[in-house]
Design a protein around this nucleic acid. Structure first.
Length: 695
DNA sequence: ATACGACGGTTTTTT
DNA sequence: ACCGTCGTAT
């Protein structure tokens, strides 16, 4: 053994409990760490990385795969804190590692060297283009929209299941269009090839192709001695294939996860994969972590009861390490307005009792569940940051900016052209198409073929596209020409600038006035662009900048900015999906009614219902000290709250007697079932629903 | 013919 | 927020 540290240097092993230490120091054969919520999963994984390095495994021969960049950054940082020699551990998300490998083997995969990566929005735009070309946009029968198409496509690819089955099971309402969708997906594959681009799913497909190749596969696997995979309950079939290919060629494999926290079924993940791990990887040692360092026992009692409802699961029962605690609250409220008030009241109360806003969070099933609450927070001047829901990259002005960056890099990107041309006032879809047709008909360089081995030829083709502008401008309305000329001129300058920062800066200048003119809040949006420009300065290569933006999308503009000041105090609002792995002293879960937990469209199969239950479980187990769950009795059908359509709901079916027995149930005095503060009756449960009429 | 504003309707969750 | 439709202005 090259490095034998003495006991004192390995103090961090002594700080682990027996199970954690067993996991961290396991040798020989596959390892499955079943880490319940709050049981020190990250600590254990970091300790294992540190231990491997301390035992002499070269750090660059360890691969750590996570689902988010944040997770990999955090773990690598902590591992380095334990053992500085672990500095060179290769860590990243499945997609970013895939990107690195696909880049290195682009030629073998038939990709141009400078291939672009489509984010979900771009992929949907390509599908939309094909949808339009095939005449589905105009057809009488309602054809699925681009977002749905992408969902169907992605699900099919990631689950590696036949399209017909995916449609039958998850998208039955598009059954009539099955053949057209199938044809469209084939065209999508062809079109991506022609454009020289890959989407996020392709990255995984291509990695798998490399990993399974009899020549390249063993070489990839031989670069690593150990592969560690975080959040294994969230892997899909494609990712299991990757793990198996790596293990098959000799890597030692460690996976960590909690089947109770599998909540990405809609992304083709399946808790089945972690349940099946011991069979798929013979000789697996299973270590279960049940000692919870996060919450107090009353919160865990309720969570354990909820988990006990699951049909198939590894048996686990969380035990609190900390003593004391208060029972979770189940609070009935009149409607979402009353819910907002109740939440705000309790948050302010907690703040007065010494809890900062940053120690509190409000979690919801969907991002718009907190719409009313946001108004209330605004009214009471309670600062908050919202995670999940609309993302930064999806904002129109950011997409515009990225489209400009893409165009400066690849003049053949028709999706980007279509978007950019329409930025100009007076220039709409029809003129954009005409201009694009003229530019596409311009003299071509042979090197423009996207299948060109070197791929470098694509740069040489760009001048042709832009040079054809003098003809293309003739086919657009005369009033729009001057403004369009300015955009093209900026693109010409940007194309000749190879540094990401200055290139982004030039494009910002031409976009800023257009953004200011288009949106009432244009000035704020321009600030977002400034942050992107600042981020571009940090990255040398413009292509790399766009790829990183796609692979690791900033959650909000705050992500790009400098770390927020420590003295700023703000509340966290988040979807439960985005809250995974996080914790707060005080957690509020909104809208725990049947129809939201489970969501009415996810109540079809028992698989789906199980996942909805786990979602509530994840929400509940985020709480360190107090947990409050709100049940609005009357809720709006329309999330926007424009009309007053509403229904009378029941509490979530997951709040069974056994779960409620662990909670304090409260009705507010203005509850419609209990007007004017009459004596509170909790024993009876009345359900009012006209649903039986609607057959 | 084209662009654009107004308006009504909408199967979540995201690497 | 987006999407499709329709009426109006250019």
């Amino acid at each position: 053994m090259a490095v034998v540290a003495d006991r004192g240097e390995r103090y961090w092993l002594d700080e682990l409990n027996d199970e954690q230490r067993a996991a961290a120091t396991h040798t020989g054969g596959p390892l499955l760490i079943l880490a319940g919520a709050g049981t020190g999963k990250t600590t254990t994984l970091c300790a294992r990385v540190a231990w491997l390095v301390a035992e002499g495994v070269p750090s660059e021969r360890i691969l750590l795969l996570t689902f988010t960049r944040r997770a990999s950054r955090e773990m690598l940082q902590r591992a380095r804190g334990l053992v500085p020699a672990s500095a060179r551990v290769l860590g990243g998300t499945f997609h970013s590692v895939a990107h690195r490998l696909v880049r290195r083997h682009a030629a073998a995969l038939g990709l141009p060297g400078g291939f672009g990566v489509l984010d979900a929005g771009d992929a949907a735009d390509v599908l939309d283009l094909l949808r339009e070309e095939a005449g589905h946009a105009k057809s009488r029968t309602r054809f699925p929209k681009k977002g749905t198409l992408l969902d169907i496509y992605s699900r099919t690819v990631n689950a590696q299941l036949p399209l017909s089955g995916v449609i039958a099971e998850h998208f039955p309402w598009v059954e009539d269009h099955r053949e057209a969708i199938s044809a469209l997906f084939r065209e999508y594959t062809t079109r991506k090839k022609a454009l020289g681009v890959v989407d996020l799913d392709d990255l995984l497909l291509m990695w798998r192709a490399l990993a399974r190749d009899e020549v390249i596969g063993p070489r990839l696997a031989s670069s690593f001695d150990h592969v560690l995979i975080d959040e294994y309950q969230d892997v899909n079939g494609l990712q299991v294939d990757l793990a198996q290919a790596l293990a098959g060629f000799g890597c030692d494999i460690t996976v960590v996860g909690d089947d109770f926290q599998a909540i990405y079924g809609f992304r083709s993940a399946s808790a089945g994969h972690i349940l099946d791990f011991p069979e798929q990887f013979p000789g697996t040692r299973v270590v279960t972590l049940e000692r919870n360092y996060r919450s107090t026992q009353p919160v865990l009692d309720a969570a354990n009861e909820l988990a006990a409802q699951a049909t198939r699961a590894f048996p686990k029962r969380l035990r609190a390490d900390r003593p004391g605690g208060v029972r979770p609250a189940v609070i009935h409220v009149r409607d979402q307005g009353a819910e907002a008030e109740a939440v705000a009241d309790r948050i302010l109360e907690a703040r007065e009792n010494g809890s900062d806003l940053r120690d509190q969070a409000v979690l919801a099933r969907t991002s718009h569940d907190s719409d009313q609450l946001e108004l209330e927070l605004l009214r009471r001047k309670i600062p908050y940051v919202k995670y999940g829901g609309l993302k930064y990259l999806e904002a129109a002005h950011v997409k515009d900016f990225v489209a400009l960056l893409r165009l400066a890099d690849n003049g053949g990107d028709e999706i980007a052209w279509f978007r950019v041309l329409q930025l100009v006032e007076g220039l709409g879809p029809a003129s954009a198409r005409k201009a694009m047709a003229v530019m596409a008909g311009a003299p071509r360089d042979l090197a423009e073929s996207p299948l060109d081995e070197m791929g470098e030829g694509r740069l040489a083709a760009v001048p042709d596209r832009l040079a054809a502008w003098s003809e293309a401008r003739e086919v657009i309305p005369s009033g729009a020409r001057a403004s369009a000329d300015a955009v093209i001129a900026a693109l010409v300058v940007a194309r000749d600038e190879q540094r990401a920062g200055p290139r982004a800066e030039g494009l910002r200048e031409v976009l800023a006035p257009l953004v200011r003119a288009r949106y009432p809040d244009g000035a704020i949006r321009v600030q977002d662009l400034d942050q992107l420009v600042a981020a571009a300065h940090q990255v040398g290569d413009p292509r790399q900048f766009v790829a990183e933006l796609v692979l690791d999308p900033p959650q909000s503009s705050a992500d790009l900015a400098q770390p927020p000041h420590l003295d700023e105090d703000y509340l966290t609002l988040s979807t439960i999906h985005s809250a995974k792995g996080l914790e707060w002293d005080h957690v509020h879960v909104l809208a725990v009614y049947d129809g939201n937990f489970p969501a009415c469209m996810s109540a079809g199969t028992s698989e789906q219902i199980d996942e909805e239950r786990r979602l509530l479980y994840v929400g509940m187990t985020r709480a360190r000290r107090t947990l409050s769950m709100y049940v609005p009795v009357r809720y709006h059908h329309r999330p926007r709250g424009i009309d007053d359509a509403h229904g009378y709901g029941k509490p979530s079916r997951f709040l069974t007697k056994a779960v409620l027995a662990c909670c304090d149930v409260t009705r507010l005095p203005d509850d419609p079932l209990n007007p004017r503060g009459a004596p509170i009756v909790t024993a009876r449960r009345l359900s009012v629903s006209p649903d039986s009429l609607f057959d």
